[in-house]
């Protein structure tokens, strides 16, 4: 059985996929903070990335650097096929649940 992914891991994985080929720890952190308005620690994102790597959902390679980083190289994360499949499965699972909601329930105008 494939290891499942948690909610936070799913978000991290989504961001990694979105920032294809340019995702690294800080960029993912910032994306989550800015786009999801969710305060998150750099260390939790890193930990999550390493765990995803352990599960084989992402791969990492050493990438470029910038002066801002004091010449230290970035560790770029790229989503693997397995990761893509996990994302699709997660989305499908949600979609199934979404589809089961009667349309009247979600009609906010009716209160």
């Amino acid at each position: 059985m494939r290891q499942g992914i948690g909610e936070f891991e799913e978000i991290v994985l989504l961001v990694v996929a979105a920032q294809h080929d340019h995702a690294y720890g800080l960029s993912v952190t910032e994306a989550i903070e800015v786009q999801l308005k969710r305060s998150v620690k750099l260390s939790s994102v890193h930990t999550s990335l390493y765990r995803l790597e352990e599960k084989g959902l992402v791969e990492s390679r050493i990438g470029d650097t910038s002066t801002l980083r004091g010449g230290r190289k970035k560790r770029h994360f790229i989503i693997t096929t397995l990761g893509k499949r996990a994302l699709i499965e997660a989305q499908e699972a949600r979609q199934t649940l979404w589809n089961q909601i009667p349309s009247s329930v979600l009609d906010i105008s009716k209160g």
């Binding site: 720890g25 190289k73 560790r75």
Partner: peptide, 16 residues
């Protein structure tokens, strides 16, 4: 093997 990239992220965040 992890120290360099993490320190980089930390520093980048710091300077920003």
């Amino acid at each position: 093997e992890l120290a360099d990239s993490i320190l980089g992220d930390m520093q980048e965040q710091f300077f920003k």
